[in-house]
Design a protein around this nucleic acid. Structure first.
Lengths: 152, 152
DNA sequence: AGCGTATTGAGAACTGCTTGCAACTTGTAA
DNA sequence: TTACAAGTTGCAAGCAGTTCTCAATACGCT
């Protein structure tokens, strides 16, 4: 039998983060985070999409667990939650080297593009400071029509 | 009997806007818009809040009509729709002298403050142009903790 | 290995919002 | 004025996304 403990593997950031808090590493949690790591940062999935991507590869995870896990991963700052309205929130891998990024959304077909702009980030920081708020996250959502949808 | 037509009142912008499009002026529509005009621009209400404010003063309007009317008023650019997530969208009077404004929201107690920043607006315009999108609206939402909620 | 407790799965429940339809209004044209 | 077509309302049912309940299961500490 191969023992997990026979050679000490580095605990992943997810695992150690969980343990710090009395929480546990589970296959479900690992799978959800891996999925986001595989597709890379900058791509957003809805809870439903995460669920169907995982179950389509034979894994069995319940939708309720997906929701719970997504919430957890957001709180642990592994994921970023976007609310582009129109049918559910979306989640993406939070890459800590990029700062917040912003979204350009076609309200008709849902196509979204990302961009970054330091002045926007800065504006959020200044506003928070002026009102004595502690900034958590800022998101600029630009609602627009993409080239294809303009003529519909 | 006092006749409505005995002296010609100026049709309101709402009324003429409606008529341009074959739509009709109804007491419900008037009440919803008046409510927003009374409380002034910069204050956001959820559909539920609009409903309870109207019904609490004795008026009878169904929630479904509130939703339909809010959507209509947004399309007619009398109102602005904000999606600050966390339990429903909110609406506010759109004052056309202000351009888009941005929101600083306490995610714990819901307190929201507004601010304006032309660079943010500009960033949205530039991004839309770069991707060939037609800009409709941009909104910067800064999620934060207000001074009171920071220590909770 | 054993045990306390966190976590999962399944489905019911909830929330915010939309829709279908019959009854009712509005605006217009006679 | 009146009459009538078309827009609008209210109600209740429906829907999508998300959360909750609780019994069964699995982590991980000792």
């Amino acid at each position: 039998m191969i023992s997990q403990a026979s050679f000490r593997t580095h605990p992943s950031p997810l695992e150690s983060g969980l343990h710090l808090d009395g929480k546990r590493m589970t296959p479900q949690r690992k799978k959800v985070l891996s999925l986001f790591e595989e597709i890379g940062s900058g791509i957003h999935l809805s809870a439903e999409e995460v669920h169907s991507k995982l179950t389509s590869t034979g894994d069995k995870v319940s939708l309720a667990t997906i929701y719970r896990t997504l919430r957890l991963l957001v709180k642990m700052t592994f994921l970023n939650e976007l609310d582009l309205s129109e049918g559910g929130n979306r989640f993406e891998l939070l890459s800590h080297d990029h700062p917040d990024h912003h979204h350009l959304i076609c309200i008709r077909c849902g196509r979204t593009e990302e961009f970054e702009n330091n002045e926007v980030i800065n504006a959020g920081e200044v506003a928070a400071k002026n009102f004595g708020f502690k900034l958590l996250e800022s998101s600029l959502n630009v609602r627009a029509l993409c080239p294809i949808c303009i003529n519909k």
